[in-house]
Nucleic acid binder design. Structure first.
Lengths: 338, 338
DNA sequence: AGAGTCTATTAAAACGTGTTAGAGAGATTT
DNA sequence: AAATCTCTCTAACACGTTTTAATAGACTCT
């Protein structure tokens, strides 16, 4: 109700509204004494700037949008934490959208963001179609792709080298002596899964081995712990266990681990196991999980910095496609074989 | 840039801007034929309503704020998912703030939300001081407390019965035959921890036993898996293991479980174990974790519905303090003793 | 001392929408 | 045929801020 405006502050401080605005946005333009008076009036009246009015007049807001695929996945949560931290430190608010894997929902989220006239959007896109983002950019909303490479040179993106990560994981298993390896993955329609699988294959080739004999790829419809446990049951039913398994995801790996242990299979004694993402729970699992760590938090930070740089310095801004390198984390599940 | 306004839409449709506004906000006031023409013009021009202008004029926005204590904790993530889902379905955008346990950061987040003139705020407060929320409410911003009981009758809140949950967990362990039980908890300055501990004590009393002899409370400075593992190490060093442990948190329980298994302790054979929250990973852990399930997703949904009802129907709205009941989930870690 | 330069401030005009009072056109009643 | 009513639509202002051009004063330089 009693929303106090810039005008009342001005009256209290004995200056004009314009001066209050200047004291707020370009303090160097106003004399120190005046500024002090204004600040005091603001404190006394409990004035809070009306963001909408400000946005309307200035033509741009102090908010960014974040659209993620699955807010329940620790990977995205960590990214979101990095984004929130960075944006908040720079005075930006973050509007969160969860597409939950649905293109339709993602589309609706983007519309809401457009209505809010967000300064820019960070998005982990559900598909490979770049047209949607172009429409946003036509409206003057910058877009930075997160965990997805940009198709165009005038577009920022922040990704992690999935092929390299896949290669790393597989090379580790091979080095450990495994020669019959299973790659348990999610839908290969997901780019990340495809590239990790490619990397795995390359590692086999690089070791001078025959992929057909060495590597079996098993595709699951989901990348959840449940799916992992089902995979374990199937492997056990099939009778012949692989010497090692590379899971495209820690959730899959945790489910698989549980399924194997329940059946009395020793990990890593009978089957070695490595996951991907290095989520917090990977280390806390009973047989701690080797994994491929991605700099998730940093991913969010950098993406946000890129986005805000693109917004605040449109002319000097250099579009970048940043590719982080993942990191092998060895724990018990691929510890030295007995 | 080429931001198309209501005025251009009006021109295209051959009506006045006011009519376009009516077609958008009060369609019943405009003749079907005209409405159709307006809608077509909107489609052709790709018009998107300017949220800020709309907010400025209307005096209220279509956004709500969500301030959580720890976005990395699956509990809060689930709540956030419920909030996002509900808000989004009702056409509201969610502005996310992560207080990361810091009062200062929470305060700054609330300021940003006030600037954005959010319609209302959902908050999981870091402390018990209700004054902060009153200041928001004076500004016409509704507040709904999440996972924290309201102090005043004119304030909505959505909580889960923590005392009941603690009682439930402890009763389960007692029923199982345990008589020397440890309650591993986080800082007792956290209300949830306090109440769960109280519940645990009550269960002991209800069973006609002496709390001093039956129950030992161990307070850890953090509620993480790491802290749980440290607790395991200490227990082992102390030499005498309890028959059962009730952890105030699944993360603590997972860490403890890992620490015990590493030392060759059998769970639940030697020590039975129950956690709290029933996060997704509790079931996927090697010895699947018994836990107290909280309706997290629903918590977020209901809180959002309450908030938006309070906003949209201020006169008919009845303030409610909703208390959900938690649920015991029995899994392997408290399975039948051998 | 007067012209020029700088600094600090102000008045007023936007920004795009929502809303209110009222105008105009048919339709219905007297 | 005039008066009244109903239904649509319009014109114009207001929301709270930012920004631009203009003003007034203080200082510098010849």
């Amino acid at each position: 109700m009693g929303s106090v405006t810039i005008k009342e502050v001005a009256q209290r401080a004995g200056v004009s509204p314009g001066t209050v605005s200047n004291a707020l946005n370009r303090p160097e333009l106003v004399a120190p004494a005046t500024r002090e008076r204004v600040e005091e009036a603001i404190r006394e009246l409990g004035f809070v700037r009306h963001g909408s009015a400000s946005t309307l007049r200035a033509g741009h807001s102090r908010t960014i949008g974040l659209s993620v695929m699955d807010i329940g996945n620790p990977f995205f949560t960590d990214v979101a934490a990095g984004v929130e931290e960075t944006a908040s430190a720079l005075g930006y608010a973050v509007i969160l959208g969860n597409s939950a894997g649905s293109l339709d929902k993602e589309e609706r989220n983007l519309l809401v963001l457009a209505e809010q006239r967000v300064r820019g959007v960070l998005i982990t896109p559900s598909d490979d179609d770049p047209a949607r983002f172009d429409r946003l950019r036509e409206r003057g909303i910058s877009v930075v792709l997160v965990d997805h490479p940009a198709h165009r040179p005038d577009q920022c993106s922040v990704t992690v080298n999935d092929e390299g990560g896949g290669q790393m994981a597989m090379a580790h298993l091979l080095e450990r002596g495994a020669r019959r390896i299973c790659h348990l993955t999610g839908p290969l329609s997901i780019r990340q899964c495809r590239e990790r699988a490619t990397g795995a294959r390359q590692a086999v080739l690089a070791a001078g081995l025959d992929p057909a004999a060495t590597l079996e790829v098993v595709e699951m419809p989901a990348m959840t712990a449940r799916a992992g446990q089902r995979a374990a049951e199937r492997m056990l039913a099939a009778g012949r266990l692989p010497e090692a398994v590379f899971c495209a995801n820690d959730l899959l790996a945790m489910g698989l681990l549980r399924g194997l242990l329940l059946a009395g299979v020793r990990v890593p004694g009978d089957v070695a196991l490595i996951g991907y993402d290095d989520i917090e729970f990977a280390a806390a699992s009973a047989v701690s999980l080797s994994s491929i760590r991605q700099p998730t938090h940093r991913l969010g930070q950098i993406a946000t910095e890129l986005l805000l740089d693109e917004c605040d310095n449109p002319d000097t801004h250099a579009h970048q496609q940043i590719i982080f390198q993942p990191e092998l984390v060895v724990r018990e599940s691929t510890g030295s074989a007995r």
